[in-house]
């Protein structure tokens, strides 16, 4: 259908070129690397001289290794749990903000807030995370500020789980904000007024009117945030501690420090499958389909 439409619109020449380019893109940039990864992941890590030899046989060892190694397994599960927590906290922070911008604030107020949120994102992600590194440092401004207020006696070591969480929530807030803001904006304000007029509490208005209306946006934001968090490298590397290692760091180590690309490829594919599973679960949970999210 779509193909016939393309040929009809651009003619067989140009239409054919477009089709070939798209096919090349999909095969060369998406399929081939992933298939190579899959191939790597199913082979044992061998010396170059052993490749092609009797030991070079397909095996699931690289996959089972993750679950038999208690440290890696724990880090994997923690990454899943941590990403879910980042998603939940980002949602909790973003939803009221998105609602305020879409329905409460004046046009000028909403615009000012949007600019204030976007401008920091003109700076590279690494530098933004580095700013949190400075803020959260042991002798950094946050500890000094809290000590001055008398909230804490001793400086707190923020690096670790707290630092990673804070850095990620901040890093992905816009990915959550925009889809939710967009979907709440399309809600007719009179519906909120009507619900209020009929006696509904603020909680009920959100539960029955706003959230059902915005659920495609919420699902989109959650999927984005979860995938970005699970695949994040900078925040855990800069703001983490040895106790808060992220699964991406393990993958990185297999590739670039352990020199075991096969194990790295297997771990990376497991992360990929996890993310896809989360997307599908979220869609099922929010009862939205992929086309709604793609909008």
């Amino acid at each position: 259908m779509a193909m016939a439409e393309l040929i009809r619109r651009f003619g067989p020449g140009l239409g054919g070129v477009i089709l070939i380019l798209v096919a090349l893109w999909i095969v060369g940039m998406v399929l081939a690397p992933n298939l190579m990864m899959l191939n790597f992941s199913l082979k044992p890590n061998l010396f170059p001289s052993e490749i092609g030899g009797p030991k070079d046989q397909y095996t699931l060892l690289n996959y089972t290794a993750l679950f038999s190694d208690p440290v890696h397994r724990a880090i994997f599960l923690k990454t899943v749990w941590g990403s879910a927590l980042v998603t939940a906290i980002t949602l909790a922070v973003t939803y009221p903000l998105a609602f305020w911008m879409a329905k409460v604030a004046s046009v000028r107020g909403a615009r000012a807030m949007l600019i204030a949120l976007i401008i920091p994102f003109w700076i590279n992600e690494v530098l933004r995370t580095l700013a949190w590194y400075i803020l959260l440092a042991f002798n950094g401004p946050l500890n000094i500020f809290l000590q001055t207020l008398g909230i804490i006696d001793q400086p707190v070591r923020w690096f670790g789980d707290t630092g990673v969480l804070a850095g990620m929530v901040y890093a992905y807030i816009l990915f959550m904000l925009f889809p939710i803001y967009n979907s709440i904006s399309t809600l007719e304000t009179a519906q909120i007024d009507a619900a209020r007029d009929l006696g509904a509490s603020t909680l009920r208005i959100h539960r029955r009117i706003v959230i059902p209306h915005a659920k495609a946006g919420i699902a989109t934001g959650c999927v984005f945030t979860f995938m970005l968090a699970a695949g994040s490298y900078v925040a855990p590397a800069l703001l983490g501690s040895p106790g808060s290692r992220w699964f991406t760091e393990i993958i990185y180590n297999w590739f670039f420090e352990g020199g075991n690309w096969n194990r790295g490829a297997a771990y990376a594919l497991i992360l990929l499958v996890l993310c896809m599973a989360v997307v599908l679960a979220a869609l099922r949970l929010f009862r939205v389909n992929l086309a709604d999210v793609a909008k």
Binding site: E188, A190, Q191, D193, A194, A195, L198, I209, P212, H213
Partner: peptide, 13 residues
């Protein structure tokens, strides 16, 4: 009081 809005503002979901 109860209001009937110009757009009616029925809940579509």
């Amino acid at each position: 009081t109860a209001m009937i809005f110009q757009s009616l503002a029925l809940f579509p979901l």
